[in-house]
Write a protein that binds this DNA or RNA. Structure first.
Lengths: 200, 200
DNA sequence: GTCTATAGTGTGATAGAC
DNA sequence: GTCTATCACACTATAGAC
């Protein structure tokens, strides 16, 4: 069906979709999801509100797309690092680096996707929460592995995992700059603090 | 003017205000500020939507009241602990304990107030942001003091302060329970991780 | 302090032409 | 793929009675 369309036509449609999602994320972040109208989104890309419904069946589906990029993508792109080589601390450092880099790349989407989940349909909400929960669980499991191997001290791994992820995700609301150097400054500080502690 | 009203009448009005704010925070947290109508708030406390305007001039003023409790109150109640006795680490521990206890006590307000700031008027938004910025700056200054005294290692104090506060505030989105014991479990894990590090 | 009634505006979404 | 036109409904806020 869609595969039978000319390539140039398909590509143009796909680009429109990402254009809509990017524009919507920006306005949702500034004003809040519910305060934004379909006309507001359409205006910023130069089309009419009704035309959006050719690309998305509802406003909620646009939000759902945003939420997927900040939950599904990290699961698929970052979590494999936890199965790589190295000690638990090295693997956690790799994950934190990748996480903050992805977060900088999709900064606006993170601002929206992590806080507008109540506006999703129950089904979409449940799926998004599953990704978040799984990501959190994998980090917790790594902490447990580090404690078992003796590399990490014994502390509540669930609470520690939640704290680490809250610390990472919070970066989206204040980070400035757009290069890997900007994110690495953050990760260096965070890993120094988390692994070796504030105390001299 | 208001002072000349009978005491019983004044008290009843004040109670209505907090009743409205509490109810509104609950619904805002569940559905998002903009998605909630004045009628929704009114319904849960058994009055008509129009009656809310006797207590608040607008919906935004209700949100503003919520934001104040999660920004002004911590400044006034927690920051004095930073001027108390003890080493920087001890004073930071005291602040973190007080912060998470206050957060648990006003959990729903934190969930709303920290994320719905874009919906405030520019003036209210600026005031709320000043409280947040000041709170953050005081924590950063304490870290700097600890580094100067040699108790803390040298690392980016601004980034570290932001990370610590993101970690603390994130607790509002997942903590269960409602006792000081529940919060202390979190603070013990966080202080162990932050001060002495994950590494054994 | 709460009510009824309503003004005025904006909303998400659809139908159907081009 | 985008348009115009429109439906049906919900919204914040106000006026004025009780």
């Amino acid at each position: 069906m869609t595969d039978s369309l000319p390539v140039s036509r398909r590509k143009r449609t796909a680009e429109r979709r990402t254009e809509i999602v990017t524009a919507a994320a920006r306005i949702f972040a500034d004003q809040g999801y519910a305060a934004v109208g379909m006309r507001d989104i359409a205006d910023t890309i130069g089309i009419r509100g009704a035309s959006l419904y050719h690309h998305f069946p509802s406003k909620e589906e646009i939000l759902y797309a945003i939420c997927l990029t900040v939950t599904k993508e990290p699961v698929e792109r970052n979590l494999p690092l936890l199965d790589g080589p190295g000690t638990p601390a090295e693997r956690l450092t790799a994950l934190m680096t990748a996480h903050v880099r992805h977060l900088l790349h999709r900064r606006v989407e993170y601002m929206v996707g992590l806080h507008e989940r109540p506006a999703l349909t129950p089904e979409h909400r449940a799926e998004i929460d599953r990704y978040l929960y799984y990501y959190n669980r994998r980090v917790r499991d790594l902490l447990v592995a580090g404690m078992r191997s003796g590399e990490f001290r014994e502390l509540n791994p669930s609470v520690a995992a939640l704290g680490i992820l809250d610390m990472l995700n919070g970066v989206s609301s204040w980070i400035r700059g757009d290069t890997d150097e900007d994110t690495d400054e953050v990760v260096v500080t965070y890993t120094a603090m988390l692994f070796d502690g504030l105390r001299a």
